[in-house]
Design a protein around this nucleic acid. Sequence first.
DNA 1: CGCGTCCAATACCCTTTCGATCTGAGCCGG
DNA 2: CCGGCTCAGATCGAAAGGGTATTGGACGCG
Lengths: 87, 87
Amino acid sequence: MSLAQIRYFVAVAEERNVGRAARRLHVAQPPISRQIRSLEEELGSPLFRRTPRGMDLLPAGEVFLEHARGILVAVEVATDATRRAGS
Amino acid sequence: MSLAQIRYFVAVAEERNVGRAARRLHVAQPPISRQIRSLEEELGSPLFRRTPRGMDLLPAGEVFLEHARGILVAVEVATDATRRAGS
DNA sequence: CGCGTCCAATACCCTTTCGATCTGAGCCGG
DNA sequence: CCGGCTCAGATCGAAAGGGTATTGGACGCG
């Protein structure tokens, strides 16, 4: 699992759409699709239901989403605090 | 910043020694050194003082260490909770 | 009914990143 | 001094990651 995967996941969960998430993150669509799939494999359970109109969060996805947001915030807080301590 | 870098950092901080951290993580020593350096550059401040006998945590490093441990725990918790929700 | 549209997934290539090995430089103890 | 630590640097091969182009499925509209 990588922080990029977590960021991709949060964007897709919020946009409910891989293409929009990709544009928001300034990356192409296929990398996002692949990373989401890889994340699901690593976690051992699907996070989204694929529909012709986008991606619907599954229960496991909702659980992961809450934690994922916390992780990203924690990384940002750690970065800021360390920069502040270092200068 | 990657989760691997955070794991490397925590190991080095705890061992106060790059070589021991490398053995503990089952990777070679130079990759650890490089990732630590890259992390310091990204954070904008040194985290360790290099000595002929090992690595001493600087104040910025101590700050980052506390946050880093929390991030790794959060990743583990997120993983477990999601696995549990998915099965 | 097609046909155009919108979606995610796949195939393929290329660049970048990452780790392993080997080597070097600095310091300390015997 | 010399032998054994330490971390850092150079080089190489493998793996990962992103981009473009394309496919395939589902819907809606004429």
